[in-house]
């Protein structure tokens, strides 16, 4: 208990924990739509594709600057999304195959660049390794500000467009029929997801960012049949995972943050799978008995 108390006494740790709470909540909320639109794989490709963007930003400017890295991540994430769509449109490949291709090429390229940078800047000075699995301990106050503001922005926008996102996800044809700009709404949703991935990378890392988007809503679905509740529960699960994972990683000796956050979310997922009110295995078993 003392360890937790110490952690909360430390103002820096308090900031980082607040950041991870908001990040997890935003991720759970927007992740609900990603899951229901069956875009889990695309978000995974986006996150992996951020790595070369970060490396190229470093190679061009030669400094470790979070805003520059995030711009690089966003650009290469966008490029990957565009390529996936282009491949689907212009070839016979299906979406899953084109996602697979783009994800591997971008991530492979990112690893090559990362290895090059690590060799040539003498060890791990650049700290770029942290972007693979996330490292809360390496964050400075400004990084936390960016995560907090970005998360609040995503939560606000998803709430604002909730009704429209809902009908556009459930029945896009009908939504178009009543005159909603479905393409525009999808584009906004996509931008929010890219933004989520980009601000989450520093804490969760490119490999596991998609897991933070998908696991909380997946768990939440076992507790409720209503999208409104799903968003709220999913956000809460994301927030709990963020805080617990970050705390564990800050207390432990340099343990990467991303895996700990995702492990926490996975534990909650298994609890939900068993005990969830609506679809949990035990409830279903009792109902059938």
């Amino acid at each position: 208990m003392d360890v937790w108390f110490d952690l909360l006494q430390n103002p820096n740790a308090r900031w980082v924990l607040t950041g991870s709470l908001l990040l997890g909540f935003a991720s759970g909320v927007i992740g609900s739509f990603v899951l229901l639109k069956k875009q889990s794989l695309i978000s995974d490709a986006m996150a992996h594709a951020a790595l070369p963007g970060i490396c190229i930003a470093y190679l061009i400017y030669g400094v470790k600057s979070t805003p520059l890295f995030l711009i690089g991540a966003a650009l290469s994430g966008l490029l990957a999304t565009y390529l996936i769509q282009a491949i689907v449109t212009h070839s016979k490949l299906k979406t899953d195959a084109s996602i697979g291709v783009v994800l591997s090429v971008f991530f492979g390229f990112g690893i090559v660049l990362l290895t090059y940078i690590t060799r040539h800047s003498g060890g791990n000075q650049a700290g770029l390794d942290d972007f693979i699995f996330g490292q809360a301990a390496s964050m400075v106050r400004n990084d936390v500000y960016m995560i907090a503001i970005g998360s609040l922005f995503i939560i606000l926008f998803t709430t604002l467009f909730f009704k429209e996102f809902k009908v556009a996800t459930f029945d896009p044809q009908f939504a178009k029929g009543i005159g909603l700009p479905v393409k525009g709404l999808n584009a906004i949703m996509m931008m929010l997801v890219i933004m989520m991935v980009v601000i989450g990378i520093q804490m969760v890392g490119v490999i596991l960012m998609a897991a933070l988007l998908i696991t909380p809503p997946l768990a939440a679905r076992y507790w409720t049949d209503r999208l409104e509740w799903m968003g709220l529960i999913s956000g809460s699960i994301g927030a709990i995972s963020g805080v617990v994972g970050t705390a564990l990683s800050t207390m432990g000796e340099g343990l990467p943050t991303g895996p700990l956050i995702v492990l926490t979310a996975s534990c909650i997922f298994f609890i939900s799978l068993l005990f969830g009110f609506k679809k949990g295995i035990i409830v279903k078993g009792v109902r059938h008995a």
Binding site: L36, E164, V167, T169, F170, I178, R221, D225, R226
Partner: peptide
């Protein structure tokens, strides 16, 4: 054409008719 596993109830779907 729609995913009937979507987390929503009958009343909510009918309400979508009012969104316009």
């Amino acid at each position: 054409e729609v995913d009937w596993d979507f987390p929503t109830n009958a009343l909510d779907v009918v309400l979508m008719g009012r969104y316009g």
